[in-house]
Structures are given as C-alpha cells and as structure tokens.
Design a protein around this nucleic acid. Structure first.
Length: 311
DNA sequence: AGCCAGGAGATTT
DNA sequence: AAATCTCATGGC
C-alpha cells in the first residue's frame, strides 16, 4: 500500500495497480463526460475502459483504466510499457490522480450546491462527476487557445490535426495512441509550419510563443504553482500574448486546479445559465456574478457541472 | 444562408 | 476606459 497524500494505491502485480476512489466519485458518470466527444484524439473508451498514453516528460506508459467492484480504479500497463522504476510508476499514478481530481473533497461543494438554484439539479444528474483535468500545462494552454471563439466540434478537429502532425504515438492492436506534442518541439516551429492546420495565424503565433516561453523556463506549471495566490497566477498568465481572462481561468481551473478559477466570459457557461434559469436572453456578466455569489471558492466545479448540462 | 462559436488583441471613439 | 473591428473557419 502506497500513499499519495490522501489517495492510496496498491500494486496488484507488475502490470496492474489499483487506486482507492473517494466516496463522491462515479466512474460511469465520468466516462459519460469523456465519451461526449466522438472526435477526441487523446484517449479511447470501449466497454467502460479507457485506453490512453500517459506521458510525463520522457516517462510514457500505455494504460487501460477501468473500475472494479471495490470502489477502485484499476490501472493496467499494456504491451511492455510498464514503468521500470518506482518513481516512474508513481509519476503515472500521480497523473491519473490529478486527471480525475481524486484528492478533492467534494462534500462542501455538494452541500452548497444542494440549495443553489442552478446547481441543485445538475449535481443530482451528475453526482460523482469530477472536474476532469488537463494535467499537462502546455496541453491545457494549447487546448484553451485552440478553442477560442470557435465551436467545440471544430476545436476537436483542430486539436486532432495538431496532435497527429506534431505528436508521437504508441501503436497497440493496430491502433495509434497519441502523445500531445511537447513544447520543445513546437518552440522550433514557425506559423508557416502550422498553416495547414487551418487555425488562425494568430493562434499559431500564440501557441509557438507559449512553447518558447516554456522552453526557456519562463513559464512552467511549477512556477505558476509556486505563486500560490490565484490572482498572481492569473496576472502572470494574462500578460502572455494570446492568453486573456477566459484562457487564463480555463487553465487555472483545469490544469492548476484553483477552486475559484472562473471563466466567466465562457459562452458555454452563459448558455447553460440561460437554459437553467429559463431566461429568454443571455444573462449579463453582472447577472452571472449574482448567480455565482454562493459558489465562492467552488466556481470551477460549478462551471464544470454547468458545462456538463449542455455538452 | 446566415448567425454563431468554450476570445483576444488592435483600433477607434 | 469603453465600445468596435478583425481575425478566420466551420458547424448547424
């Protein structure tokens, strides 16, 4: 038995590990979220089993993630990608714990949401849903930028083009499992190299610029975490070309996991509130802030659940 | 066919 | 400072 702060995991055999799940976690509900987009290129789901590559630096493993009947995730390493060293195995497990936000205690969120006008139904419909994250900072930033001002369907198409052109993959059972392009590779490109992606030239510039900032060590998940304070991290991100309030909060929510991150300009959030509140027009920013007042310090979870209502 | 899309930066008022 | 324009392509 090993301990990762509050989450315990066990080595079953050399190819299999189990991770104890918190009570407020429902695997099928989380699968439902992951299944909503058919064009997702970073994982595959069949028979309630996720198959994907988990890459932490040079450490890479092709894993299948499922659940057993003891409220545990089962992680199986495929095809000889079993980590050779203990610290490598721990990195992969850490990633999975972060991906599903397993360390977060949702009891206070549910208590607050139970009496909230907008959240009370979503938390019943999706009880056990976690804010499924994007632990890799470069991936989170790229996904945010790609998604700016275009519909989600097209955003997934753009992500797939980017990943399949610049990412690496591991092949298994005649299928390719992709690794998101790394910033050191993208830092060396010019916007011309991204032209056939058909994202805007500006988005290409933003992504390359961010890759270069990460390459020189000016921007990293660690140095954002070290800022501790949400506002300081937000300011540091917004200073970067291509990152505005929406993208900064999106990344602070899904990668850095600040509970109070809140992409308030998000059209999905706006439309979800419009639907749930039964408005005949989009709510204004001021109205959204009123709805969100009870959510203090749970804005990111509130947003995630409201998104789930529509997507 | 035309409006809109998980915005941001630049320009104009 | 606040309002408006531009990017750019595809989904529905």
């Amino acid at each position: 038995m090993f301990e990762n702060r509050s989450i315990k995991y066990s080595i079953v055999n050399e190819n299999e590990i189990t991770i104890n799940l918190p009570e407020e976690f429902n695997f099928k509900v989380n699968l439902g979220y992951l299944l909503r987009e058919k064009n997702e290129c970073m994982f595959e789901i069949e028979e309630e089993r996720i198959t994907r590559v988990i890459a932490v630096g040079e450490n890479r493993a092709l894993v299948q993630i499922s659940e057993n009947d003891q409220q545990q995730l089962v992680v199986r390493f495929l095809d000889g990608t079993r980590p050779q060293k203990g610290w490598q195995r721990d990195q992969i497990i850490e990633y999975i714990i972060e991906w599903f936000d397993l360390e977060n205690d949702l009891s206070h969120f549910y208590k607050m949401a139970a009496t909230d006008q907008l959240l009370k139904n979503p938390i019943q419909d999706f009880y056990g849903l976690r804010n499924i994250g994007i632990p890799d900072l470069f991936e989170a930033l790229c996904w945010g930028i790609i998604g700016q001002q275009i519909n989600l369907t097209y955003a997934y198409t753009l992500k797939r083009r980017f990943v399949e052109k610049f990412g690496e993959s591991i092949e298994w059972n005649e299928k390719k499992y992709w690794i998101f392009p790394t910033y050191d590779k993208i830092a060396k490109l010019t916007p011309d190299d991204l032209a056939d992606m058909k994202m805007t030239v500006k988005k290409s510039e933003y992504i390359i610029g961010i890759a270069q900032l990460m390459e020189i060590g000016e921007l990293s998940k660690d140095n954002l975490m070290l800022l501790k304070d949400f506002k300081r991290a937000e300011k540091k991100l917004i200073k970067i070309r291509g990152i505005g309030p929406w993208t900064a909060n999106y990344v602070l929510m899904r990668c850095l996991r600040f509970p109070n991150a809140f992409p308030i300009d998000d059209v999905g959030l706006i439309n979800s509130i419009k639907t749930l509140a039964g408005l005949d027009r989009k709510p204004t920013k001021e109205e959204i802030m009123e709805y969100a007042a009870p959510w203090r310090n749970w804005e990111s979870y509130a947003t995630f659940y409201l998104w789930r209502v529509l997507y």
